[in-house]
Measured scan of single mutants.
Amino acid sequence: MGFKLLSKLLVYLTASIMAIASPLAFSVDSSGEYPTVSEIPVGEVRLYQIADGVWSHIATQSFDGAVYPSNGLIVRDGDELLLIDTAWGAKNTAALLAEIEKQIGLPVTRAVSTHFHDDRVGGVDVLRAAGVATYASPSTRRLAEVEGNEIPTHSLEGLSSSGDAVRFGPVELFYPGAAHSTDNLIVYVPSASVLYGGCAIYELSRTSAGNVADADLAEWPTSIERIQQHYPEAQFVIPGHGLPGGLDLLKHTTNVVKAHTNRSVVE
């Protein structure tokens, strides 16, 4: 069995187990497998329904001669939608809004960016022009300005110390501490036991640490421990890039980060 097929099978099995364990909360999309990078042309966006009122959005972007996937989250909030992270750029984010209108038909009224990198804030200006209120932590807003990236308009308070959590509509926002970046936030959907790890969490097929220019490698494993301790009931975990899975993604990420750190020390 090929690795790609095995990865998709694991996603399907995880979703099936969740649907059985929580039949009222989960209505997993039966329309197909989780979209992969090879299936999404740059400039297009796919939506994948995880649970009743919960979707991931998947886009792709060219970077350094390669094409990478990027995940975000959409959560229903009454007759409105909360968006977590842009679709990595203005063109993708405009396509995301169009796809949401086509498939869901509810307005996106608020959006949260989970850290300051372009795959999370690139497209904020498109959201703002569409009347979406954009939010991020003060740290993310400051770092985005320093980096020359787009800056969300509103500040999220109460997320300055490791372990801080605040309720934001249908989700809980959690600051686990520094990891992929010093400002990275985690998003949890309690009604569906869905954990969105953003770039602080890796997919299972990833074996290298990737972009760690703004990471705190020493603190990252401790931050992941905080996530595990705060959300032990999480059933569906979405990484910032690639295929979702279960809580095993947290341990896998820790292993990859520690291996990278150990290699760096040896070198």
Rank of each mutant, 00 (worst) to 15 (best):
S30C: 08
P138A: 09
S70I: 01
Y231H: 05
A98W: 14
D52R: 10
N71Q: 05
V257C: 05
L217I: 14
L82T: 07
A25F: 11
L81M: 07
G246V: 03
E233M: 11
G65D: 15
P152R: 01
T114V: 00
C199Y: 06
R46T: 07
E145A: 15
L9Q: 15
P23N: 09
A234T: 08
V67D: 15
R110K: 12
L185N: 06
Y188Q: 01
A259V: 10
D85P: 00
P107F: 03
F168A: 01
T222Q: 13
S70G: 04
V266D: 15
S16R: 15
P138H: 08
A98H: 14
H252M: 03
N262S: 13
A179D: 02
L143N: 07
S137P: 07
D216N: 12
T253E: 01
S208E: 14
S191G: 13
G177F: 03
S30H: 11
R120S: 08
T222A: 12
L97D: 00
A15P: 14
I104R: 00
L13R: 13
G197A: 11
T109Y: 07
M1F: 05
F116N: 03
R46W: 08
L159G: 01
L81S: 01
L10C: 14
G78T: 08
G240V: 04
E225D: 14
L5K: 15
R167C: 07
L127A: 03
Q228L: 13
D77P: 02
S208H: 12
R226F: 04
D77C: 03
A136V: 04
T134F: 02
T140A: 05
G197H: 03
L247Y: 15
P190C: 06
S162G: 14
I58V: 15
D64R: 09
S31E: 09
H180V: 00
S208V: 13
A213E: 10
I201P: 02
S70R: 02
P107Q: 12
P170Y: 01
G240F: 03
Q229P: 05
D64A: 12
V166E: 07
E44L: 08
E101K: 14
S162H: 13
T14A: 08
S70V: 03
D125C: 04
A94Y: 13
A94P: 04
E80R: 07
R263F: 12
V75R: 03
N71K: 04
H117G: 00
K4S: 10
Y34C: 07
T254Q: 12
V67I: 09
I238F: 06
T93F: 00
G163E: 07
V112E: 04
L81W: 01
G122W: 07
G240D: 06
H260W: 07
F168C: 05
F174P: 02
F116H: 06
E145Q: 14
V45D: 05
L106P: 05
K102T: 11
S161N: 12
G32A: 11
F3P: 06
Y48C: 06
I238K: 02
V37S: 15
